[in-house]
């Protein structure tokens, strides 16, 4: 499978603070790749580097053969969609308007086509009934599903999800996991998911990269089962065996 994201010798952090050193991994097209680790280990920081919100301290990141830098940032951002932990829906707009926003700004579709596409996306995340609601009237799970629909608006090649299960009950979290797999299968989108929820990891992840705060490093790379059963690192084994899956 083609490598769609390449992270090479990256030092992750902010300002002068280094959170992770010399990180190397690649994400293959069409897979669900999970960045995992304990709280504060730098997985969200790594995602912010990959999507170009923060510059890397060292090393390089390539997305679809384009190096993430100032010149390519715009081109890369047309290939990605991001769902943030809180959903980050715009509070002054309805759910439908939130999904329409990227279409209004970047697509050449006419208004009725844009509305049809937004409604199709909302239907695909089971949110069509809430199209006219304001974000403040939605539950946490609904906000995240609406945010996924908005992130999918421009048919991105890669969808980044930051802590999709955070703050959700197990049933809603499981439904969201299934939605990710459904979208991956139907739309052939590559997913990069930041999470530390073991049930989610075992449900959705094809492969994962695991980070450790104390060593400031990526300590494991592979499928969840490989990491659980075959890892020689005691921290990795302990992390995975806490969940007993």
């Amino acid at each position: 499978m083609e490598e769609i994201i390449k992270v090479e010798h990256v030092d992750a952090g902010y300002g002068k603070t280094v959170v992770l050193r010399d990180v190397n991994f690649c994400v293959k097209r069409g897979e669900v790749f999970v960045l995992l680790g304990g709280s504060g280990c730098g997985k969200s920081t790594m995602m912010k580097h990959i999507i170009g919100l923060n510059p890397v301290l060292a090393g390089s990141i390539k997305i679809a053969d384009l190096e993430m830098n100032r010149k390519n940032k715009s081109a890369i951002r047309r290939k990605i969609g991001v769902m943030y932990q809180s959903g980050a829906l715009f509070g002054s707009m309805t759910v439908l308007e939130n999904v329409l926003l990227p279409l209004e700004e970047f697509s050449k579709m006419k208004k009725p086509e844009r509305i049809d596409k937004a409604m199709y996306l909302l239907e695909s995340v089971s949110m069509a009934d809430a199209a006219d609601k304001m974000p403040a009237d939605l539950s946490g799970g609904m906000k995240k599903r609406a945010a996924i629909a908005r992130a999918m608006a421009l048919d991105p090649e890669i969808l980044f999800l930051d802590e999709p299960s955070a703050g959700l009950d197990p049933i809603t979290s499981y439904a969201l996991d299934n939605l990710i797999l459904k979208l991956r299968d139907e739309m052939k989108t590559t997913f990069v998911v930041v999470t530390h929820e073991l049930p989610s990891i075992f449900t959705i992840a094809d492969r994962c990269a695991m980070f450790d705060k104390s060593r400031k490093a990526m300590i494991a790379l592979g499928s969840p089962k490989e990491l659980r059963d075959e890892s020689e690192d005691s921290f990795v084994r302990e992390f995975f065996n806490r969940g007993k899956f």
Partner: peptide, 15 residues
């Protein structure tokens, strides 16, 4: 909006 990551969302949508 910044605290709720809405500014980040705008930026990653290239807005």
């Amino acid at each position: 909006m910044k605290v709720d990551e809405e500014l980040d969302a705008l930026e990653t949508m290239d807005l």
